[in-house]
Design a protein around this nucleic acid. Structure first.
Lengths: 243, 243
DNA sequence: CCAAAAGTGTTTCCGATACACCCATGA
DNA sequence: TCATGGGTGTATCGGAAACACTTTTGG
């Protein structure tokens, strides 16, 4: 093993890899789950769809900052809830050089953003999770892991609310669970219109607004909101909040 | 900071950070949960306890390889189950330069290894999770996150078996759940000697060996093993395996 | 025979599941 | 009035939780 430090005793001389960040941005439209992709405008994989992201370009930029910056530059999306997914460091995952990628995943309300391609991205748009195009690098693997993480997470944390507007209907919330968990058609726990709201309301952190949606050619659903205070209190008290 | 670019057009010109790996190794002794630490033999934090780990020193070394290598060099532990925890990239977490650390966590049978300090480690030993010494860098934070991850994971995956010898007793397995979940004393689900085995055996992937421990000055407990086949089958069939 | 720890069975109760009909709205 | 989708209550069943005494073993 190498132990050479240079004259600056704090500066290591070990090999330094390139580090990038990528974001798996999930957007929900009330019905289906989408992922935000960009079409690469530069080599390698020019013209192929890929996750938004890019190099950490400055020594004083954190990974979080880098991924926010790239996301804004490439897709015009900003100010979202981001969480680290995993780091990908296999040899050969980038044809240019050894690249280590810190992947994040994000949850947004799809219609809150006007997607605009920019920077290295020739194009940017939403794709249904079930209808993704061929992807650059190992981005398929990253997305699989992100979906898996989402599936686990939704059992323990109310992540659904990041995917919905402040006020939402029970069927919308239910559609999130169906889209993420993809349960069998006869799973009455998730798919039954009577059991689902009961279970959700029992968690104690969803409250009615008293309002209803208008303008539908059918019975108008009630609007609910996420009661963040109630959620925090319940969490602190160790109340089980599992779905 | 080092910025050496070559003429290869694939070589990016972005800034490259230093990347290290650290391992949070949990060892179980049948009673309590321990963490493996090393006493640093070099600056910075010379003489302070820290997680085993170190720089990715070669461009063809994956993060997994690096952490295995460092762990072996510094503590003589090898061939263990390792899983990525999280990547730590905050500015200023290392006084030398900007360092990004990929942290892993591992689960081992404590008594299977003879801990021997080596390489940059002046010393290496187990500490009870509740009695950790002051730690170098942000290793306290890394350990907190590792414990949290462990706590979540044990609900869904039979990670306990990595912490036990092939044959183990029910009270040992129960002690793992108690050590990791640290439930209130009146939590009869985890702490009751009648309910716990019932629940475990119902999962279907633990089988009796027919053997018993010998040499105790009291009733000898039965020995069980983890039935990996049964576990895989159950998992594929979507049987719920939650604790 | 004593101390220490392990093994075992039953009752109760709550919460999850299963299930079907009526309501609201706009066209 | 029709089509579409949303809202609501109840009965049953199963699994979780609560609970205490007996057995084994070595000293």
């Amino acid at each position: 093993m190498i132990h050479n430090f240079d004259t600056n005793k704090w500066e290591s001389e070990y090999w330094h890899p390139a580090v990038t960040t990528d974001a798996v941005v999930f957007g929900f439209d009330g019905e289906n789950l989408n992922i935000l992709l960009v079409e690469r405008g530069i080599e390698p994989y020019k013209g192929t769809w890929a996750l938004p992201g890019g190099f950490i370009t400055e020594s004083d930029e954190s990974a979080e900052c880098a991924v926010y910056r790239e996301l804004h530059e490439e897709t015009n999306v900003e100010g979202i809830y981001l969480e680290e997914l995993q780091t990908f460091s296999k040899i050969g995952r980038d044809p240019r050089e050894r690249v280590i990628t810190i992947a994040f995943f994000a949850l947004v309300v799809k219609d809150n953003y006007e997607i605009k391609a920019g920077d290295d991205a020739k194009n940017a748009q939403w794709f249904l999770v079930d209808e993704l195009p061929p992807l650059a690098f190992d981005h398929n693997e990253i997305i699989s892991i992100a979906i898996e993480r989402l599936r686990q997470r939704i059992h323990f944390e109310p992540i659904g609310f990041h995917l919905l507007a402040k006020e939402f209907t029970m069927p919308q919330l239910q559609n999130i669970y169906i889209a993420i968990l993809n349960p069998p058609l006869n799973d009455s726990r998730v798919r039954d219109r009577r059991n689902f709201p009961k279970k959700m309301l029992k968690l104690g952190y969803i409250k009615e607004t008293g309002k209803k949606v208008t303008g539908n050619p059918y019975r108008s659903p009630k609007l609910y909101t996420f009661d963040e205070e109630a959620y925090k209190t319940a969490k602190q008290n160790g109340v089980k909040l599992e779905f």
